[in-house]
């Protein structure tokens, strides 16, 4: 799954640590999500969308490989 968290985070002027604090996770989790090493839960994905003030489908995009 592709995500645009880094782009949106940069637009909002937030560091990984600041974003992590707002969504109540560790900085390592935000880093792992941005590097596409970890797919967040639905709750975390929604929290990220609320904090970054975008829609969830603007933040995450399904890829071909996610269907298999």
């Amino acid at each position: 799954m592709k995500n645009f968290i880094k782009i949106q985070r940069t637009i909002k002027g937030l560091t990984q640590a600041a974003l992590a604090e707002k969504v109540e996770v560790t900085r390592q989790t935000i880093n792992a999500i941005e590097l596409e090493k970890y797919s967040p839960s639905a709750v975390l994905a929604l929290k990220l969308a609320v904090v970054l003030e975008v829609k969830t489908d603007e933040l995450f995009q399904l890829e071909e490989k996610d269907w298999y």
């Binding site: 109540e24 996770v25 560790t26 989790t29 970890y38 967040p40 839960s41 975390l44």
Partner: peptide
């Protein structure tokens, strides 16, 4: 600090 990534 516990979160879902640590759980994973």
């Amino acid at each position: 600090t516990e979160d879902e990534y640590i759980s994973k």
